[in-house]
Design a protein around this nucleic acid. Structure first.
Length: 164
DNA sequence: GCCAACGTTGGC
DNA sequence: GCCAACGTTGGC
């Protein structure tokens, strides 16, 4: 039986002083592995639910004006994040090293569109249709989040995407 | 810089 | 299995 392709949408947070949307655009083939996620719920999304072709909003967090800056495409589905086994990595995980196997997962994403107008958190909170989205809720720390089709569409409309 | 919210750890 | 203590996230 043919598998029906249901488009899925996500939001991933990044601290731009560590890795920004523009860093992704400048990366070889505009692609990078999304390493260092160390939260089980976020990992499970990447391991179990992310599919090639899913679209991801790239959100800058922990800055004065948090915002969505563009869109990326999932180009490789979940695979082991071996940074966890590397003592030199800032994402080293002592327990994983002891077991000799990384329980953590990453995906590869490729920048596809830059927003002409970054969609700021302040702006989103004023939009009745999107103010319910997860990233806007108080204390929502999950760094990989599902986004509904409707929320994705509205954010894209506000952002005015151009191919990178 | 502050601090609320959250996830994880570890004693019991 | 409970829950207090702790460390981190991330908006403000």
């Amino acid at each position: 039986m043919a598998e029906k392709k249901i488009p899925q949408f996500w939001l991933m947070k990044t601290e731009p002083n560590v890795f920004s949307f523009e860093d992704l655009v400048k990366a070889p083939n505009r692609t990078t592995c999304w390493e260092g996620v160390r939260n089980y719920q976020a990992r499970n999304f990447m391991r179990d639910t992310f599919k090639n072709g899913d679209q991801v909003l790239i959100y800058h967090s922990n800055v004065a004006e948090p915002a969505v800056f563009g869109i990326a495409l999932v180009v490789r589905e979940g695979y082991p994040d071996l940074h966890a086994l590397d003592p030199k990595s800032e994402y080293f995980d002592e327990a994983a090293k002891t077991k000799g196997i990384s329980p953590w997962v990453m995906v590869d994403v490729k920048a596809t569109h830059r927003f002409k107008n970054p969609v700021y958190r302040e702006q989103l909170k004023k939009e009745p249709e999107v103010k319910t989205m997860m990233v806007l809720q108080r204390g929502a720390r999950l760094s990989v989040q599902p986004v509904s089709n409707e929320h994705f569409d509205l954010i894209v409309k506000l952002g005015i995407p151009f191919k990178v």
